[in-house]
Amino acid sequence: MADHHDIDEPKAKALLACMRAVGSVSDDAQVTYLEQLQGGWSRHSYIAEIKDGDEQLSCVVRARPQGSTLDTDLGQEFRVFELLVPESLPTPAVHGFVADEDTPFDGPFFVMDRLPGKAINVWRGRDRAELQADWDGDRGIAEDHVKYLAAIHQIDAGRAAEAATPRSFLETVDHWQGVYEENRIVRDPVIDESYRWVRAHEPDPVEPALVHGDYRIGNCLIEDGRISAILDWELSHVGDPRFDIGYMSLNYHGGKFTTPGSELLNAVADHEWFAERYSELTGRPLDPEVVRTFSAVGALMLVAIMTTGLRIYSEHRTTDIRLAWTRFVLPGIRQDLAGIMDW
């Protein structure tokens, strides 16, 4: 890590105050490094190194900036991380939440431990090759990916509902269609027809569970061939757990952009193997037709989020050009939707 880095003092003070308020650091603690990470569409993340006496702490600050692509509650995300602490899942401990909009992080923020591991980007060929090698080899990442998803879905739904909002199938569809309609700049007949299709394919309900909402290998960290962290819980809710599987089954999440990605589910595991292993772990069989419906819902969620980003960018509420770049992701998602609907 570069040591020439200038530390943003207001941000450093705000994060120490947050941690001191919950007793995570002493009054003598000092921030020795603070830098915004690349990535993060709806949240901004910063890594911070803190020296507290003889102790050296590595933390991450999660902030919801103004002009975020997701109008999700950062407080809920914080509460979900708190909920997960006693579970046998690799999730970070949290160190306080600041709900104020007016902070040096340009909005509310919370602090959490920085877990070891590296992020995977399935749209990068070498990262897909690494995942393929895991699948062809000892399958540590593949096994963790399915095992942790099964564990998330087996958390007591009543307890989960104290942290995350319950949402039925139709409420989910209504929500994302509302976001899409509110933010769209142009009309898209493929998306309009896709909403009609998912409404006509409402699956029979199952017992609700904690749904991660954005479960994919890109939201995990990998270390020594295993998943070392599951992050980005901002879309979590209590609902139909099959959403997570449909969403991660999208070709887009296998690394497809303008050229095809991996044939593996989420570039990690064979589709059938994953479904069978998941059913084995949870005792819940998976109907491929229902998974297909949730793939369409997941694609529509992505479209709604990207459409929001395009609206925010077009109105000059952000200069983050990655939001404009998502315009070029939408044709591939449209293509995925056409395939899911058997057009």
Binding site: I185, V186, D188, V190, T307, R311, T319, R334
Partner: peptide
């Protein structure tokens, strides 16, 4: 059926280039 016109995207690209040029540090 894509939002954002060519001119809006070109302005966006230019703004990023300008911001990079204006930054005096790494």
């Amino acid at each position: 059926f894509n939002a954002l016109r060519t001119d809006q995207l070109l302005i966006g690209i230019g703004s990023v280039l300008r911001a990079a040029a204006d930054r005096g540090a790494a």
